[in-house]
Design a protein around this nucleic acid. Sequence first.
DNA 1: GAAATAGTGTCTTTGAGACAGTATATC
DNA 2: GATATACTGTCTCAAAGACACTATTTC
Lengths: 229, 229
Amino acid sequence: MTTVASTPDMSERRYRDSSDKTLADYPRPSVAVDTAVLTLDEQQGLVVLQVRRPNADGWALPGTFLHEGETLAMAVARSLQVKANVEGLLPRQLHVFDALDRDPRGWVLSVAHVDVVQPARLEERFAASTRLMPVRAPGRLPFDHPEIVRRAVEYLQSRYADRPDPDRLLGEEFTILQLRRAHEQIAGRPLQRDWFRRTMEPQLEPTGQLASGARGRPAELFHRREPGS
Amino acid sequence: MTTVASTPDMSERRYRDSSDKTLADYPRPSVAVDTAVLTLDEQQGLVVLQVRRPNADGWALPGTFLHEGETLAMAVARSLQVKANVEGLLPRQLHVFDALDRDPRGWVLSVAHVDVVQPARLEERFAASTRLMPVRAPGRLPFDHPEIVRRAVEYLQSRYADRPDPDRLLGEEFTILQLRRAHEQIAGRPLQRDWFRRTMEPQLEPTGQLASGARGRPAELFHRREPGS
DNA sequence: GAAATAGTGTCTTTGAGACAGTATATC
DNA sequence: GATATACTGTCTCAAAGACACTATTTC
């Protein structure tokens, strides 16, 4: 281990030692973000947003390189805005992919994210260059993107395990059946009717109104319990 | 959004588009790794490894900058080897800290890791420049390091929730009381005697031997169930 | 024998699952 | 009234918690 002479114009060198040179001495990796934007689609269930790969065939998750002065969350928001015209909400980190040969462009770390957005936020998305694909059949995706989708779904499943629609994928009012259908799409399996009602109803506020239009006895409409009640 | 002219000598430009320029066009962040190395100490319980801050007062978690040709796991292993003379095992990512002003040296992303190592691996550590501190009173730590310790402990707790010592912090043979004491150090709270035995015993193999030296009826010694039995 | 720890048996409580019964709408 | 769906009551079962009892050692 050789000690490298310090760069004289570095103003802050407190952390240097024989194994930890100054900031400027090393080649730096590019850092990218890739995001699995998840939402619930009326027809397709749980879907993930994809964008056309520029100058390449096929589709990919939206992503971009991290710019100077940006946090990861800002880069995620920018990539969604620019590539898909979608306003993200609260991106959450999933994993850093760092295999040395993962990107033919060179040394690129990719920080995978998940962002759960309400369906309405995807209505204005670029029609020609974006698509929504079911998470269980997302089509052919490059790089680590299939793994990102897998981790994103896993995250959403744990988030929805015992709370009623925490990310407001449904509207403000819904019946317990509608809520259960949404949770079943996310869980990827049928949920028990009895257990579901007993778990969710105490966390909901009845509106006093009834749903209409369906066959059978009309169901009561609920909304989410407001914070602080 | 302006399109930037491509750099002619880039061999790989398939991914370029108006918002996603070539690799070389952007300033890149430095990427660091910081690691909470956890182990069980006979006296202090669950402890975290700290190293003296070079050219600064106080202590910090071991870390280093990512070098070219290295994965994050390799950088973690190197930082533990060089800074503490400790051989790490299986670092796991916790979080990327990316606040713009988090490091006075400049633009530095830090990927926080946790690594659980057997106490024996820490015996040869540098005596003068390292120390082990209880995770619940780790002393004054810089940057995001207290948060890293918090997340590391949370990770370990979920890992130890219902499996007998998955990271082999105990020796090969142990009594159920020794196992429970270790799990209690990690959980940070007393665990119920009845439930603990009922949960763990089916996952253990009796050795047929008995512990000796203590007061009271000697306890049976167990070892971990070998894979495939 | 007293004290301490190991190990076992079992009662209670809790929550999930199963299922049947009642309520209220559409057709 | 037939059918469909919403809602409620309750039995069963499994696991956690609590607690008591027996077993076997040291002192």
